[in-house]
């Protein structure tokens, strides 16, 4: 009797374990998805192909740049977020073309496509031993500015390859602690987006 009871308990336990495995097994696209490499602003984050260090973040209500010699202005009902990153290739030349702004609630903003023919647009071509600045521009909702993360990779949704996830934890602030938002930011300036 005891042996049968033990067998039944064992079977029930095995069924429970199998059910849990079935429910919680990661899907294929999760198993083969990006491998996150986390870091913070100001510190280098080393991915397989490149190193990235976020230098600064700037916010603006509108951005201006020159296209074919003529000034272009882009406004937004949200916020422009401009992230300046120092990028360096590691063992081979690489182009870093994919960036996304992940807000505190998980909203994911890809780079804006409203700045056609503006200077310094990705992909940023990198050669080993020649670090350079890269700029990534996002159009975000104001409530997604604080507590955000920058996702950076060579290509969209890397498979089994590293993706930098850098916490944007040093944002520009006014003396009263509120977020510093410039009225206008000139993207043509060589400073890489400094307001």
């Amino acid at each position: 009797m005891k042996r049968r009871l033990a067998t039944l308990v064992l079977l029930a336990a095995a069924a429970a374990v199998l059910l849990a495995m079935q429910r919680h097994s990661p899907r294929y696209d999760e198993l083969t998805g990006p491998i996150p490499v986390s870091g913070r602003m100001g510190e280098p984050v080393r991915t397989r192909l490149f190193d990235a260090r976020v230098e600064r973040v700037a916010f603006a209500r509108q951005v201006v740049y020159r296209r074919f010699g003529s000034p272009v202005m882009r406004s937004t009902s949200g916020l422009w977020a401009i992230v300046t990153v120092e990028l360096a290739a590691r063992a081979k030349s690489v182009a870093v073309g994919q960036a996304a702004w992940e807000g505190p609630t998980g909203l994911l903003y890809q780079q804006t496509d409203r700045l056609d023919f503006s200077p310094g647009q990705p992909p940023h071509a990198l050669d080993p031993g020649l670090p350079r600045q890269g700029r990534f521009v996002f159009e975000i909702r104001p409530d997604q500015a604080g507590g955000a993360t920058l996702r950076l990779s060579e290509r969209f949704s890397p498979r089994l390859d590293s993706e930098a996830r850098i916490a944007l934890d040093t944002l520009p602030r006014n003396p009263d602690g509120s977020l510093a938002i410039a009225d206008t930011l000139d993207l043509s300036a060589a400073s890489g987006g400094r307001p």
Binding site: A91, K92, S93, A125, P128
Partner: peptide
């Protein structure tokens, strides 16, 4: 490409 003694590689630039 161009390669150095450490195995680093430079591919053509468009710059």
């Amino acid at each position: 490409s161009l390669e150095d003694g450490e195995g680093r590689r430079w591919t053509p630039t468009l710059a």
